[in-house]
Design a protein around this nucleic acid. Structure first.
Lengths: 106, 106
DNA sequence: GTCTTATCAAACCAATTGGTTTCATAGCAT
DNA sequence: ATGCTATGAAACCAATTGGTTTGATAAGAC
């Protein structure tokens, strides 16, 4: 298990089910059962995905009666986005290597 | 193994060694041995990381004598960055849920 | 030609992942 | 009280991961 925050974030995003869950939570809170509905898997499996997302800081969960609604913590995506942003200049200008960029700038 | 491109990309980025390799390649081509030097692991282990990066489209490799220099393909990060960008508005404005954002906009 | 270097490939291993099933528990409904 | 519903927890399993070691191969160096 990766101990650094960035690795945990990217690992959490490396699963289409988890990305879909985040997409659903962008519309607001949802319970485990609601989140599981679209997927061909048990609610327990979705519960495991939620735990991965929670450990990565990407969601928060609260207690409401016997329900455990999750909600998005989008700010946890910030570091990942910033890491990628350091490479944006490379592909935006069609350069894959910094040396090329420096050469053409000079 | 995830078949979708986005999952493969995020999975490739979910390892600090691989992110460091990409950082090194931002300065230009490097051989397996050069890339392995900073890490406390065998060149074979780094070779495996390179294969992961290659399958994700994040690097390209060529043959030069007995060397196999790798170079960055930054454009392969574009989709991942765009996925994250769809959430940027959430944390930029301090909102974690779209419903809040819509409510405040209205 | 022989040696050395750089790399890949394969076998192996422990730990992790992503799913299942089963059981336990908490709380609403009747 | 009794039962149903939502969820968590644990045991289990197959596949994957990230490393190792060993052996093969390809190409430059002497």
């Amino acid at each position: 298990m990766p101990i650094d925050h960035l690795s945990a974030t990217f690992a959490a995003l490396a699963d289409p089910t988890r990305r879909a869950i985040l997409g659903r939570l962008a519309n607001g809170e949802a319970t485990v059962k609601e989140l599981a509905a679209p997927f061909p898997m048990s609610a327990q499996a979705v519960g495991k995905h939620l735990r991965v997302l929670e450990r990565a800081g990407l969601i928060e969960r609260r207690r409401a009666a016997q329900l455990r609604p999750s909600r998005l913590r989008a700010v946890a995506l910030k570091d990942a986005a910033e890491w990628l942003d350091t490479y944006r200049a490379f592909w935006d200008a069609g350069f894959d290597r910094m040396e090329q960029r420096l050469r053409d700038d000079g």
